[in-house]
Each structure stands twice: as C-alpha cells, then as structure tokens.
Amino acid sequence: MPKIVIDQLSLFYGQNQVLKNVNLEVYEKEILGVIGPANAGKSSLLRAINRLYEINYARISGKIRLDGEDIFDIPVNDLRRRVGLIFATPVVLPGTIFKNMSYGLKLYRKIKKQKLNDTVADALQAANLWEEVKDRLYESASTLSGGQQQRLCIARTLAMNPEVIMMDEPCSGLDPISTAKIEATMLELKKIYTFLLVTNNTKQAARTADRTAFFLDGELIEVDKTEKIFTNPADARTDDYIRGRFG
C-alpha cells in the first residue's frame, strides 16, 4: 500500500486555484522529487498534505490518505508530527540549538531529561550535524551557518520521529557543499523515512529522487521513475522544462 494517496486534490486561495485535480501516490521509503516552474503548486501540495494551508485560509477539495487514513480523521497535531516539513529558508526558532531541538519534543508529552538528551543527540547525528554542534548546544541557533541551520531543522524534524519528511526547496539558499551534505543525509535516511522533495533544481531531483513528478500551473503533468522523466518523458512539456526551454 502506498504511504500517501492523493485523490482528486484541488487547493484554492480565495478564487485562485493553485492545485487542479491532482492524483498522486507516494510510496514507502522512496524519495519522490517534485519539480516544476514557479506557481506550479509544488509548495501548496506539501502544505495540503500536513494541513498547514489551513492557517493561510485556503481550502481544499479531494482526499489525502496517510497509511489509508483520511488526514482529516487524524488530529492535526499528530498529522504534523507524522509528516514533517522542512522550509526553503531554515526556520530557526529564537533560542539555543538545544532549545530548537527540544521544542517539538516537549510539546506533546513529558519527557525525562536523559531521554530528551539522547533523542536530541541521535537526531543531530542522523542529520550529520552532531560533530559540528556537540560542544555548542547551548549557543544561539542563529550563530550557525545557513547549511547548518537547515540541517538543524532536519534534525529537529527527525527528533519528532516522523514517518514522512517533506522538503520545500531545502537547498535553495545553500552553497554546493552544504547542498551535497543535505543530499547525502537524505539518501541515508531514505532507509527509514519516506521523502517528498520539492526542488527548483532539476539536477537535484535527478541525483536523489527515485521517482519524479512534474507539475505545471497546478496540474500534475506526469510522474515516473526519475531516469525515465529525465531521459524519455511522456509529455513534451516535461522535456521542455528539463531542457530549460521555459520556467
């Protein structure tokens, strides 16, 4: 059974329809790349899945199922814990590195100090950030570099023990070395988690994604094995986009 099933999904901001009847499945433990030009609805897709669109007064029609369960039958806070979201610009919360890591953990249950420390350390290790920050956990998180901040956000999401990790152009503001580190982290974590990777960098999708979906103006044009999308796509528009003829 697919991890996420999206069925006839449309999303509206007021009169403006940004997703149009999207049908898409995300498989367990794959990286699904989502590519497309600006205003294709890529970010809106992620925000529909964890219901973050609700805070922007958008509305949706259609169904989204996580493990076969309608996301509207899951308490929204549980849903967002199970489906983590990493933003394009790292959202480092005010306070120390440790506080950033523990913020989500402390929200939903009491946690013993030792367990908290272990979870934080494990998550930072999984995000390949532990070595760089282990001696400065109590420094302000804003002192970290952009790449480190983004890996902190990934670690913070991992600490919540999610099932799906959605990334919204996670490397858009980062240098090639930081980007490579994040991609390496993703490829390692794929063994445990399901990834949805929105990216403006088609090469990034080609490097990391198992399957790739191409969106254009709110419509899903096609989704297939990454290799197929990049060498022999079914739709001419996909080919045009990948070859840089528009977008």
Binding site: L52, I55, D78, R81, F87, P94, Y103, G104, L107, T157
Partner: peptide, 11 residues
C-alpha cells in the same frame, strides 16, 4: 515563519 515552523512541528 516562526509560526509556520512551530505548527509544522505539531504545536
């Protein structure tokens, strides 16, 4: 972004 970051962590 702080608000969104917080909601995205399940707050």
């Amino acid at each position: 972004t702080y608000r969104e970051g917080s909601y995205a962590l399940g707050a």
